[in-house]
Write a protein that binds this DNA or RNA. Structure first.
Length: 719
DNA sequence: TCTTTGGACTCAGAAATATTTAG
DNA sequence: CCTAAATATTTCTGAGTCCAAAG
């Protein structure tokens, strides 16, 4: 079923003949390899090779990969140990003192945040303050809330200061309430009707529910797609009564518009609800969150990431997904496996129901799981990123990436050498690894054909995804890559590669169809096995983490100007972040209101410019007057005007920065790299070094996720 | 022994919702 | 000061990676 590599696929399709054919091909290839080698030797003799001079990254001008030369002197200890060393390196005394110190730091941090807020209030007089007073009696509540928040911070579990558990065991105590189930279907009011072939038709409850799923999506592009419509209609009909099946034969004759309107109106009504009603709704939600949103893990209360089961609906695949529109069934307690500790209070299934299973597996981190009916895969309820279990793993991930830093040069030398390997397999591996390293491509596992959208990563690239240009725009050996990656996001890049890589690619594409695998002898398993052998814990994805983080560090170093004000520094940070997002190809659709809001911003800038000019003139006038009169009043006036001018100029500068940032950010999503690829300690060290409050970089949620890093990184941290 | 399948976890952008800012 | 629009944050769940057990 899987999209097999060329060899196997051939065998499957044409049987023995195919295998024979393959073998011939293989021999041919081997011969070619040898031929190429001869050529290469000749060229090398002529001194035409670029050996050694072309470090990865240089050619592309993306500035990564080259700079962190020869850090081999650093300790080779394991990550965690290294961390400890760093902590101790700060000159902290015994354990207790260390703890005290970090708590103190926390407090300082909070104060800083308050300061921050104050400053902001001053900058924009009366705005945020007003909001607060508007809440009237809320003032007290507000204070209380803040106090509580502070207390919570105090109580936060500093798991990074504790000993690590033995390998494989994830917890000793786990207690929770089980998932919160999606609300049951509420039938439509009598006056909201479905029409078939122009006539109203009363649907059975189950049929009606599924109809609402489609109706709700009516103004979404999905419902215009044929696959979506077909899948939906097929699944819908399966759930109909036989009478309904008899009548409802064509989707085109179905009229969901009244149902659609009902839901649109409903959501608008909800939006227009009076304040108190909204407040009540929110309180109810908070209560559920409070009850189901947390668990106890090893004596600590930890937030759960997704404590609700996914409601039924229509499957929304990304890109050209063959299963889009299929019915996603309602999850019942009978589908759910509960995982908790033996001695804990085992969660109660909803009235009249039973769990599928209750197990006590402390080698996994999930609290509950069920099998989803579209792809027949497991879904889990797991902890929030702020939890120990996630945080520790995250930390570990960055430590692995840091270890790669120590050996990456050897690895690069190795794969460069392998570009000339006699074995086709190894050659392909070496070229693929080069792409993974230089372009930060994903590994590219094989996928089941017809089960998912047709997307690829490095190892699954096909011949049709690359074009080879011996010369292009004044550059030699240019590879043009164009393919759909994860989430069907297009990757498009023209990149100059080394001659040897280019020649190999020519070899790999020779005598192949466009739809054949570029790396037909390569699988991610084979690649990762090799990587594991080069460094403990090394896999393809580590390169993405490593290159992302090292790029951030280098870009920050290159772009930050300590003379800049905070806004200017933040622009630099965003640019560094952006460089990483570009490298990782993290994209977003251009916001709908982008052009408009850009225009508005420009108008504002123009207006501000005018104000600045006026202020300049007024200042001059005031100075002239002072010249004449030389009295104290005139002098005060000059001072006043000076101040005004300065303020306006600052405001203008800020607007300009904002505009630049916005334009550059148009199509780029910064969030993913920030949350998943950039070692937070780099950012925190940068903040400390340049006096930028951490809150400017990380919002509350992000600070919770990276609490470990905030606690342990000082300004000297080096990735 | 090798491949396939199942399982568990990270990472991904869109959509929903909350908050802030502008008019 | 109020409302609406813009922006920031949070939620949601699909889509990958990688490992190990099963076949």
């Amino acid at each position: 079923k899987k999209h097999k590599k060329g060899k196997v696929e051939g065998a499957e399709k044409v049987g023995k003949k195919g295998i024979k054919k393959e073998k011939v091909l293989e021999e041919e290839k081997e011969q070619e390899v040898e031929k190429m080698e001869e050529e290469e030797e000749r060229e090398e003799g002529a001194g035409g090779e670029m050996e050694g001079k072309d470090e990865v990254g240089k050619g592309s001008g993306d500035g990564k990969g080259v700079k962190e030369e020869e850090k081999l002197g650093e300790t080779q200890s394991t990550g965690m140990e290294q961390e400890k060393e760093e902590e101790e390196g700060k000159g902290d005394g015994p354990e207790k003192e260390k703890k005290k110190k970090s708590r103190k730091k926390k407090l300082e941090g909070e104060e800083q945040e308050k300061e921050e807020k104050k400053r902001e209030e001053e900058e924009t007089p009366g705005k945020s303050r007003k909001r607060k007073s508007k809440e009237g009696g809320g003032e007290k509540n507000n204070k209380k809330a803040r106090k509580e928040e502070g207390k919570e911070v105090e109580n936060k579990w500093k798991w990074w200061e504790e000993e690590k558990k033995e390998d494989g065991v994830k917890w000793t105590q786990l207690e929770h309430r089980g998932p919160y189930f999606a609300p049951l279907y509420e039938p439509l009011p009598e006056d909201v009707r479905f029409y078939y072939a122009g006539k109203p038709l009363k649907l059975s409850l189950a049929t009606e529910e599924i109809a609402t799923f489609y109706a709700k999506m009516l103004d979404h592009e999905y419902t215009t797609k044929e696959i979506f419509q077909n899948n939906f209609f097929h699944d819908w009909r399966k759930e109909m009564t036989s009478e309904e099946q008899e009548i409802i034969q064509e989707l085109a004759k179905c009229d969901f518009s009244e149902i659609h309107k009902y839901f649109v109106d409903k959501s608008e009504a909800r939006k227009a609800l009076p304040k108190e009603e909204k407040q009540k709704l929110k309180e109810e939600a908070d209560k559920i969150q409070e009850e189901y949103g947390y668990c106890i893990l090893d004596g600590h209360r930890e937030k759960i990431g997704n404590f609700k089961t996914e409601p039924p609906g229509l499957f929304r695949g990304r890109g050209d997904h063959p299963k889009m529109g299929m019915l996603k069934k309602r999850i019942m307690p009978e589908d759910v496996v509960i995982n908790c500790s033996r001695d804990s209070k085992i969660p109660e299934p909803p009235e009249g129901h039973k769990w599928k299973e209750v197990r006590f597996d402390n080698t996994v981190t999930w609290l509950a799981s069920w099998t989803e009916n579209i792809q027949n895969t497991l879904k889990y309820i797991m902890l929030n990123p702020s939890s120990k279990l996630k945080g520790e793993k995250d930390w570990q991930k960055y430590e692995v990436a840091r270890r790669l830093k120590d050996v990456v040069h050897e690895i690069r030398a190795r794969y460069r050498a392998d570009w000339k390997s006699k074995e086709m397999k190894n050659r392909q591996r070496a070229v693929a690894l080069y792409f993974i390293d230089k372009l930060a491509l994903r590994a590219g596992n094989e996928k089941e054909e017809g089960e998912t959208a047709d997307t690829v990563g490095c190892c699954s690239l096909r011949v049709e995804h690359i074009r080879l240009h011996p010369r292009l725009d004044g550059q030699e050996h240019v590879v043009e890559l164009d393919f759909l990656g994860k989430d069907s996001i297009r990757y498009y890049n023209k990149v100059a590669v080394e001659k040897q890589v280019f020649k190999n690619l020519q070899l790999f594409t020779k005598n192949k169809d466009p739809s054949d695998d570029l790396f037909d002898r390569l699988t991610t398993t084979f690649l990762n096995k090799h990587l594991q052998h080069l460094m403990d814990g090394l896999t393809a994805k580590v390169f993405r983490t490593y290159n992302a983080s090292i790029t951030l560090q280098e870009q920050l170093k290159a772009l930050t100007n300590s003379e800049d004000n905070v806004a200017g520094k933040l622009l630099s940070y965003n640019r560094a972040n952006r460089a990483v997002a570009v490298l990782c190809n993290h994209q977003r659709s251009v916001p709908k209101t982008f052009a408009k809001s850009m225009e508005i911003l420009q108008t504002k800038i123009d207006a501000k410019k005018k104000q600045v000019e006026e202020a300049q003139q007024e200042l001059k006038k005031a100075e002239d007057e002072l010249e004449d009169t030389k009295d104290a009043k005139a002098e005060a006036n000059v001072e006043k005007k000076k101040k005004l001018l300065k303020r306006l100029e600052e405001q203008l500068a800020r607007l300009n920065v904002q505009a630049t940032d916005k334009e550059e950010n148009k199509q780029i999503a910064l969030g993913t790299s920030k949350l998943n690829y950039l070692d937070p300690r780099i950012s925190i060290a940068w903040c400390k070094k340049f006096g930028v409050p951490i809150e400017k970089i990380y919002n509350k949620t992000q600070r919770e996720k990276f609490a470990w890093a905030i606690a342990m990184a000082n300004e000297d941290f080096e990735f």
